[in-house]
Structures are given as C-alpha cells and as structure tokens.
Design a binder for these strands. Structure first.
Length: 888
RNA sequence: GCGGCUAUAGCUCAGAGGGAGAGCACCACCUUGACACGGUGGGGGCCAUAGGUUCGAUUCCUAUUAGCCGCACCA
C-alpha cells in the first residue's frame, strides 16, 4: 500500500465489508501458523484450555462470549511476547449426544437396540465428526486464535487412557467403589444421574393423608405422602422417639393396604413431629431418606418400578402401569377403601433430569461411586490456606467452597453406550470384580477366562474433570504437560462451577499435585432482550453466525466484551451489535483518511522527535494513558472497561479532535509540520489498532496491513504499554482549555442559530499572560473549529456592545453578533449559566466553611476544592457582569 | 431455612468516598473533501426506601422493599 497513490486509496469503499476480509485473513493466519504455540525456550508460556463444547450440535451465544474472553486474553499475551497456547477441543457429552442421535434414529423408526451397541456407536461417531467440523467452522468465523495442532477430544485414545488411569488409581486407593444405593434415575434416558444433574422445580402437588390399620386391630396410624404410588413399596412406618402420640405404637405393626404386607412401626430421629401427622411411611427403595432409615432399621427394600418407571411385579395389581397412571389408579382405589381420607394441596420441589426433563425417580441400583470426602478435603484445605485457585470475581469462591464442603459421593456410572466404558470386568465363574487398564486375560482369583466388561460408561464430567492435564498428554510426562501445565486461567460460566470447575480442581490436585489453573474467570449468562435465558424451547436464541453475517465477527466480539461486567449476566440487543459495527466502520473511515493523506510516507518516516504541536503532544499523551488503562483493565479481567476506554479514545479523541486538527497541517504549506502530523497520525493509529486487536482481530489486521507498519502480522506485533516519554500533563491541560473554548463557541452558535458556515468576529480575553500565550499557541485550532472572520486575543479587550459571551477557565469569549442576536435569549442563556455556576460556588463554599472538612480531609482534596471554588466564582462574576451590561 | 446478586436517564448498563456517565432512543441544526454505520449542540436522573459510619455517602455498613439466582428441606 505504501506506494499506491492517493487516488487508488480513495477507492476504498466508505463502508467496511467484514465478510470479504474475515475469511481471507483467518485462512492466512492459520496457514502461517501464528497461533501455534512454539515452545520457544526464551519465551514465557501462557496457556488456556478451552472449555470443550459438546459435540451435540452448534455453538450458541454463550460459547461466543466464553471463547471471545479467552481469545482476548490469549491474543494480548501473544502480542506481549508470551509463548501463548490456547488449546481447543470438544466434549463427547454422553447423555446429551446419545439422546440427540437416538432422536434422529427414532424419526427413522429405529431404536439403538435395533442397531446394537457397536453399530449405534458408529452412528454417534459419524454425528460427532459432523458437528466437530461445524464447530470448527464456527471457531473460524469468530476469529479464535486456537492452536489446532493440539486439538483434543474427550474420547481420543490419549484422553481415554487418562480416564482409565484415573479410574484404576482411585479404585486402588479405595476412592472408587461399587454399591447398591439410591441414586437419581432418569426414566426417560434410562440412566443414573449425579446429584447435580438433577434440577429441582417447585411443583404444585398434593399431600395425601392415609390410614394404615394396626395389625392388632386397635385402630390405625395416619401417614401422609405426596407420592402415593410408592406405598406399594412401604416396609415400615417411622415416628419420632419423643413423640408422645406414638410412643405406645412403636414396635407394633400395621397392614399395608392393597398389598397386605405387615410392616413395623419404629422410632427414628429423622422424623419431624410437626410435619403432617408426625408419622412417615417408609419406602427405602424409592426415597433417599427412607433408604437411610431402611439401613438403620434393617428394613426390607422393595423396588416397585422398573428402569422406565413402569410398575413392576412388586406392585401387585398395578404391574405394567406407568408411575403416574398408577398414582391415579391407586388414589381411586385407596379412596374407595377409605384408606385415603384427605387430600391437601402441597407445593414441593421435584427433581427433574437436567437432560431429558423427566421427573427423576430415586431408584435403588448398583452403581459406581467416587468417595468424595478425601478429595474434597485436600481441595478445601488448599483453598482455605489461601493457596487455592483465585476466583474472579471472588464471590464465586464462596459458592465453590460451599458446594465442595457439602459434597456427597459422586455417582459416576451411566447406563449409556456413548462414553468411556468402565474399566471393570466380572468373572462369570467366581463373580470377582477386576479393575484394570486393559482387559485381563483371566480371572486372577479363579483363573477362568470368562470375563465380562461392565456394560456402563462413565459420567461425562469424569473425563472433563481431567481436561486441563489430559489434553496436555497426561499420564505421560510430555513436553507440553511440563511447559503449559498448570494453565494460567480457566474461563467459564457460573453455571458449571460445580459440574466442572470443582471437579477439575480436585482431580488436578490428586493426580498432578497442582491446581490445574491459577485463576478462574467466571462470567454470566447471555439472556435475550427481555432478560430470559436463551433456550431452544423458547426459540429466543440468537445464532452467532447470523450476527456475524449481518454485522461481522468483530462487531459481535466487541459487543460481547463491552456489554458485560464481571460475573454478571448480559442481555443481547441487536442495537448493541449495531453500535459496535458502527465503531468498526468509524475506525475504517478514520484509517481511510489517514491513508489518503500519507502520500509516500513510510513507516521509517515516523518521527516523533521533531517539533510537536499541542495537539500532537496531547493525543500521544492520551494514547499513552489509554494503553495504561487498557492494560490495567485487562490485567484484572475487566474487558468492558478496556473496551470502553478504547472506544472513547479512538472515537471521541482521535477521530473527533485529532483528525480534525490534523487536517490543518495536512492541507497546509509547512512541510515539516505535515511530516510530524503524518507521523503522529500513523503512530497513534498503529498503536490503537494493536490495543484493539484482541477485541476486533479482523478489521485491525486488515487496516494494519494497509498502513505503514513493521512486521508480518498484527497478531504478533508488540502490545502497546505505557511509556514515560509520552507523558505530558501540560499539553493535556492546554488542549482541554482549547477544546473548552471551542465547545463554548459551538454551543453559542447552536443556541443563537448561527451556522458554522457563517464567519463571525471573535474576541478572546485571557485573564493573564500565561493563558494568552497558551491560546496564541492554539490559535490555529480555534480558527479551524470556530470559523472566525476576525480573531482578537487581548487581555484588555473591551466587551463589545451587542455580543454573546462565554466564560471558560481563565478566559472570556465574546462573539459580537450584532443584528443576529436576541438580547432576551442571551439573557436567558446567561441566567441559566449563572444559576449553574452559583450552585457550584455555593456547594464548594459550604464545604470550605466546614471546619471538619478543613481539618480532616486530605490536603490535596481541600486544595482541589479551593481551586474549583475560585474558578467557579470567577466565572460567575464574569457572567454576572455581562448580565448587568445586557440588562442596562 | 441458608447464601449470593441486582436496584443510577425512556430502554440496556458502566461508574467512583469529595464536581452524576455511555450506548440506543428523543429534540434542534448540519449533505463541512475520512465516515449519515456520520458531525455539532441539546433535553432528561432528590443514583429503590429508612437508618448508621464519616468532615463529606449515590458509592462503605445495617435493616426494609422489589426482582433474579444458587443450595438445603419438603412424609
């Protein structure tokens, strides 16, 4: 571009077209391997592993947010010279993916059982390959700087070996066991779930009061239940040991209606005397609390349902009915038998499967569990010592701790086909259980070779929990593991702190001896414009690709980064994307301007050591402050603040002021001044693009390639930092005053209906020589913006008769607008100004007359108030004087 | 029941112990040689309520109200 003519440059369209640039640039980045972590010894490593998206389908807005945050972090670090690794990958998402594949099969009228395990898995792998490529295409469209050479999948050979290793080691340590217990059962997916895969919802139900007859015929005992169908599995009645009403009944038995089973009445502390009748029917096979009581009192455990929650042979006459059908029927029957005598409305919370939505059935079955206590204790201890993972915002640490301190054993087996098969084998001969990395040749106990592998697979989160190190090659001591583990930060939503973050921490500690990441950055969820969660069922989700097609990836990214504040949810508004797109377009046009005015100017020509004008010094000073501010904000993960500072600087300072002022010299005769201006224009643009690059990677690269620059790509250009040499408070103050004056004149012109195109005489009356000198230095700027036909700068200037006045710090301005002004309007304008100034003066005076303030406030604050007070008072006096003149 | 978050302009949201901000929307003017996806100017808020700390609170603390979220219990 350097040697293209201005004419050619002018042919750049005035509207930036993201579609054209984005795909081309991304392909080039990838081809050039800019995002491949190099392992260079002289660079400090910086690593992030992506939270692996599920291969269930396409990425949604939440992914776009999560991944963009990471890309901003990793791109900045890469520019800062780190050996940055952002490791991509995907999660097999057991239940979710299997459910999706089964649903598509069902449309063809096939079930997974028709296909058989092996063929079904082939289908799932096909599905996985398809969606993996869809997801990769989405990553590309978003512009993510991922190192694809290290992409992983949770069911890769390597990661599967990590899973088996962890399982075997925990088993050998006694931290994985198999047991027959009450678990959460999803009757739709027909699998066990962990505690956190159950969502509790308030549901309007009913409390059914029933009378069970005493075996000795001496009456009956009343119990209440919300789930009458479970009474078929009742094996006891519990009362509180201190309950006077029932003390005499403890030890007696009752006949269970319908079934006729004789069941004992016993005492247990668990019972709440104040709830219901104070007597509880106990169904150990269908309620976790009842199960515990069952263990304590040696009760029989009778399951009355099968795996699809259909009543089984233990349900007597109800066998074959669905559990809810059975409820209806049994209520009718119990009512007829006068067992059921009262139904009360009752609101209670009912567990639903997070995946299928089915009402979860507490179900007695044999499953594999992780004993959590020892693992949790290590993690808790570390966190409490202050050596734990740093949560950002820190309030999420409490949430994490609360969960892990109360965690129960983790049910890890799933009755699915898609997932890591449990590495346990059972001997057909002696029933021995063998847990090992590979299938054993024979039973170590009896020597027989008839071994069956456990049919079940592991909870998806079991493998996800190993992600930060399994992706690096663990259990092998690979170079990557040594160099990039532990990772620097994990970025994820608050909705999976328990599912994932906590599990990575304790498995990381257990197996690598280190916390898997230094920081955890927690962000909120994306909602629609009405604040509702985006969901498929509501149909209110917005597809990131749709946004990209309309506004470009940069606009979407910038919107996501600036519309959020740490840890809080954010609402999606098209208007916000549009505003970000407009920002991109603004930069595009500013860059067009710069390019059109460069002529043969080259990067080597940048010279910031020549004679700089006030505006030059000011914009460099402000750029410098912006670089410092952006870096500081990003260091504390405050993306919104960083983005806002860039927006403000680029638009309101560089474009609105500096470019306008630059025109003065670009179009002027002074060749040296022109060179300086070109230097500053290019330098500030270059630096601004670099600062913005992590947020808007495409447009910044596209422009950067077209302006004079050094280096191959902006993705590897040094990230700007604060430089002492650009600090210039004096220039900043001067520029502020000049801008103030210019704004005042604009204000007057607008209020007096004097268009900018109409030249007016201008008299400036500085209060002292210092201000006069300053204004004289800025004379050209005033001419540029105020369009005066004459400009008088004079400390002794006399106020012209018919004129409009503005008062800024240290200076008065008069515009003699004879014949154009309405005196009454001017009086009204000044009165308003006076009122405002007077209020300020009063506020400051009140403060300064407060002895407490003078005595206790810091000296610089008092001094600042004094200065302000004097300034306001001076302005007020001048406005006052002017008003008196006008009123005469 | 326990814990957390939120309450600032019409809307969505920043903000900071000492002069209330942005984007969008609104009003007026401007087709000025980068940009109408633009420019200039403007209107609009007792910063939820009541206390407290402080010389000073919209900002910190407590309570209240409203909304949201998590956890536990729910026979």
């Amino acid at each position: 571009m350097n040697n293209e003519t201005a004419k050619e440059q002018q042919q750049i369209p005035t509207v930036y077209d993201p579609q054209a640039a984005e795909q081309r640039l991304y392909d080039w980045w990838i081809e050039s391997q800019f995002f491949k972590a190099t392992g260079e010894a002289d660079k400090q490593p910086y690593s992030i592993v992506i939270p692996p998206p599920n291969v269930t389908g396409v990425l949604h807005m939440g992914h776009a947010l999560d991944f963009t945050l990471q890309d901003v972090l990793v791109r900045r670090k890469r520019m800062q010279g780190y050996d940055a690794l952002w490791l991509p990958g995907m999660d097999h998402a057991g239940i979710a993916t299997q459910a999706r594949v089964e649903a598509t099969l069902r449309q063809e009228g096939i079930s997974r059982f028709d296909l058989g395990r092996e063929m079904f898995l082939e289908k799932v792998w096909e599905w996985k390959e398809h969606y993996a490529s869809v997801i990769r295409a989405q990553w590309r469209r978003m512009g993510f700087s991922l190192d694809y050479s290290r992409e992983r999948f949770t069911m890769d050979e390597g990661l599967s070996r990590a899973v088996r290793t962890v399982f075997v080691k925990l088993y050998e340590k006694g931290l994985i066991y198999r047991g027959n217990r009450i678990i959460n059962w999803d009757p739709a997916a027909r699998t066990a779930l962990s505690d956190i895969e159950v969502e509790y919802k308030e549901v309007k139900g009913a409390l059914h009061h029933m009378r069970y007859p005493l075996q000795d015929g001496s009456g009956h005992i009343t119990v209440a239940t919300t789930r009458p169908e479970t009474m078929l599995g009742d094996t006891g009645i519990a009362v509180h040991p201190d309950d006077e009403r029932y003390k005499h009944l403890v030890g007696k038995t009752v006949f269970l209606p319908i079934i006729g089973r004789e069941i004992p009445i016993f005492a247990d502390e668990y019972v709440d005397m104040d709830f219901g009748s104070g007597a509880v029917k106990v169904t150990p096979a269908h309620d976790p609390n009842d199960f515990e009581m069952g263990l304590r009192h040696n009760l029989e455990m009778i399951s009355v349902m099968d795996e699809s929650a259909t009543m089984n042979e233990n349900a007597g006459p109800y066998q074959g009915l669905d559990r809810f059908e059975c409820r209806k029927q049994i209520l009718k029957d119990l009512q007829e038998q006068d067992v059921l005598f009262k139904i009360e409305e009752h609101i209670h919370s009912v567990g639903h499967s997070e995946r299928s939505g089915a009402v979860v059935e507490p179900f007695l079955s044999t499953q594999w569990f992780v004993a959590m206590k020892p693992l949790a204790d290590t993690a808790i201890e570390l966190q409490k010592q202050g050596d734990g993972v740093r949560f950002v915002p820190d309030r999420f640490e409490k949430i994490y701790l609360h969960w892990i301190e109360n965690v129960r054993d983790w049910c890890i087996s799933r009755q699915l086909w898609w997932g890591h098969r449990i590495p346990a084998w059972y001997c057909d001969e002696c029933n021995e259980t063998i847990v090992s990395m590979e299938k054993p040749a024979s039973c170590p106990k009896c020597g027989h070779a008839h071994l069956r592998q456990d049919e079940d697979v592991l909870d998806t989160w079991f493998s996800s929990g190993l992600w930060p190190f399994s992706t690096m090659g663990w259990p092998d001591e690979t170079d990557d593991l040594k160099r990039y583990y532990p990772t620097d930060v994990l970025v994820t939503g608050y909705d999976i702190i328990y599912f994932w973050v906590a599990r990575m921490i304790f498995t990381g500690l257990e197996f690598t001896g280190e916390k898997p990441f230094r920081d955890v950055l927690i962000h909120g969820l994306i909602r629609d414009s009405q604040g509702r969660k985006m969901s498929k069922s509501l149909g209110n989700g917005v597809d990131p690709l749709e946004v990209i097609e309309q506004y470009g990836a940069d606009a979407l990214r910038f919107m996501l980064m600036t519309a959020s504040s740490p840890g809080n949810d954010l609402r999606f508004y098209w208007e916000k994307v549009e505003s970000a797109r407009n920002f991109a377009n603004k930069i595009w046009n500013a860059s067009r301007f710069v390019m059109m005015n460069l002529g043969d100017f080259r990067y080597e020509d940048i010279d910031l050591h020549g004679e700089l004008g006030t505006a030059d010094k000011w914009i460099l000073h402000r750029l410098n402050e912006t670089a410092a501010g952006v870096n500081a904000a990003l260091e504390r993960y405050d993306f919104g603040e960083a983005g806002r500072q860039l927006y403000e600087f680029i638009w309101s300072e560089y474009c609105d002021w500096y470019i306008e002022l630059a025109k003065l010299y670009l179009q002027g005769e002074d060749a040296a001044a022109k060179r300086t201006t070109q230097s500053v224009l290019v330098y500030v643009l270059d630096q601004s693009l670099r600062l913005l690059h992590p947020f808007m990677p495409f447009i910044t690269e596209e422009i950067w390639q077209h302006i004079p620059h050094q280096g191959q790509t902006i993705t590897l250009a040094a990230y700007p930092e604060h430089q002492q040499r650009f600090v210039d408070e004096q220039a900043a103050r001067e520029m502020e005053l000049l801008m103030d004056m210019i704004r005042s004149v604009r204000n007057i012109r607008a209020e007096m209906n004097v268009p900018q195109s109409r030249p007016v005489a201008m008299i400036v009356k500085p209060a002292n020589s210092e201000t006069e000198a300053l204004i004289r230095r800025g004379k050209a700027y005033i001419r540029r913006f105020c369009n005066p036909d004459s400009l008088t700068i004079d400390q002794t200037a006399v106020t012209p008769e018919k004129s409009v006045t503005a008062v800024v710090t240290g200076t008065e301005l008069f515009l003699p607008l004879a014949g154009m002004i309405d005196v009454d309007a001017e009086i009204a304008r000044l009165e308003k100004e006076w009122k405002h100034l007077d209020a300020e003066v009063e506020r400051v005076e009140k403060k300064l007359s407060n002895q407490g303030f003078l005595a206790k406030a810091p000296a610089d604050v008092v001094e600042a108030e004094r200065t302000k007070g004097l300034d306001y008072a001076e302005k007020r006096e001048k406005v006052q004087a002017r008003l008196e003149e006008l009123r005469r």
